[in-house]
Nucleic acid binder design. Structure first.
Lengths: 215, 215
DNA sequence: CGGATTACTGAACGATCGTTCACTTAGTAT
DNA sequence: ATACTAAGTGAACGATCGTTCAGTAATCCG
């Protein structure tokens, strides 16, 4: 029986004052739309309930975005651009494969936590429309890059060779991506400790570490 | 440009002939509905396109199920009942905690693979409706049982104690549940080998095993 | 044959969907 | 004041949604 909480447009927050009538800008609308998409699912979120959350009429949304699909497209692009940025950082391009892999995994955790709404939306997309299919293709390209890194680390002798690298990659991202299901900002863990824990489980497993196995 | 493939009701397959007019029974309709829900998403799957996949009229579906929500409810119940069955098997109730945990994890992999459509649907549910909220509650109860098992295994000394057992459990099911995103039956792996691989990565990590660490 | 049983049709319903359009409102810049 | 710009309103649109209903079709049993 909870009524829909209507948001309020944020003040311009320290910048020089914007021109025109005050209200939401594009980014603020997008943030609230993404939250609604996650809460109800993209298809189940009507422009009507979205407008109610914004405290606006439906037609006002079309002043900021040409269509509902464009809201989704921009949100997915945001998440993908952030993830792809990890792969192009210098630490992902030079050094031992094992170190590059660890950097990318840690970077994926951090990007996911820092953009959790947008990445959550990305991970719930399954190719319904052209917009979703394009996003899926970029996600797969990202996965392929990491798989190549796993292969390098295996050839280098850093990663076990008895399991298919594609399976290893998928299990790794299974762990990391599960963050969107349960991680909530402001919890006891900070991001660094969280990334440490995930890397520890991924690399050494959850069996009790034994003394005779130094890192 | 792919046209919608209309299914055909399966013949009674060896059993004694059914009474009444031949056609789909409830289970066959449910199977096809679940496949459609996965392909397009539950909300985006209209009764119209579902009817087209069945090769029936919309109203014919209401002969088998009272509503679209009931299709979802029965599908989710199927997945949950199968998963909960793992927890009540004898091997999950006696023995060392580490062995019980390994049995449950392996059992979860097998149930997931053997009921991949229904479990996929379950894992995509996020609490939109009462039906989905009930399913989520049962899923959380399942997770709590496994977390308790992880705690026992930790107290027993079998599982590392430097990471919160709830995080360990969530990472474990992050790996296992990711199967619905990439595992396809008929691939090179059989179910046993797959479960072995997942247990191996979960327990020992993906670092190259060293000789001085016997199991 | 007739009755029982199971499966299905076609048209229609009220509701809700995403989107459009002509118009208004509230601020800054000159 | 006037112009300009950004933001928002309210009514309406055609389409599609899940569901209902009265009637029909095809099989088995006796």
């Amino acid at each position: 029986m909870s009524s829909i909480p209507a948001a309020v447009p944020a003040p311009p927050s320290g910048d020089e004052p914007r021109r025109g009538r005050p209200g939401y800008d594009q980014r603020q609308v997008l943030d609230i739309a993404v939250a609604a998409f996650i809460e109800h699912g993209y298809d189940a979120t009507s422009m009507g309930v979205l407008a109610a959350r914004l405290g606006l009429s439906k037609s006002a949304i079309y002043h900021h975005f040409p269509s509902k699909g464009d809201l989704l497209r921009l949100a997915l692009d945001e998440a993908l651009t952030a993830l792809e940025g990890v792969l192009t950082a210098p630490e992902a391009l030079q050094g031992r494969a094992a170190d590059r892999l660890a950097f990318v995994l840690r970077g994926a955790v951090i990007v996911l936590v820092n953009n959790i709404s947008y990445v959550t939306l990305l991970l719930r997309v399954h190719g319904n429309t052209d917009v979703e299919r394009d996003a899926l293709a970029r996600r797969r390209a990202f996965d392929r890059s990491v798989t190549a890194l796993v292969v390098e680390a295996r050839d280098e002798g850093s990663v076990r060779s008895d399991i298919d690298p594609r399976i290893v990659t998928r299990l790794l991202f299974g762990m990391i991506n599960s963050l969107v299901e349960w991680y909530r900002p402001g919890g006891p863990e900070n991001t660094e400790k969280l990334a440490d824990d995930i890397l520890a489980v991924a690399l050494d497993g959850l069996r009790t570490p034994t003394a005779d196995r130094a890192g």
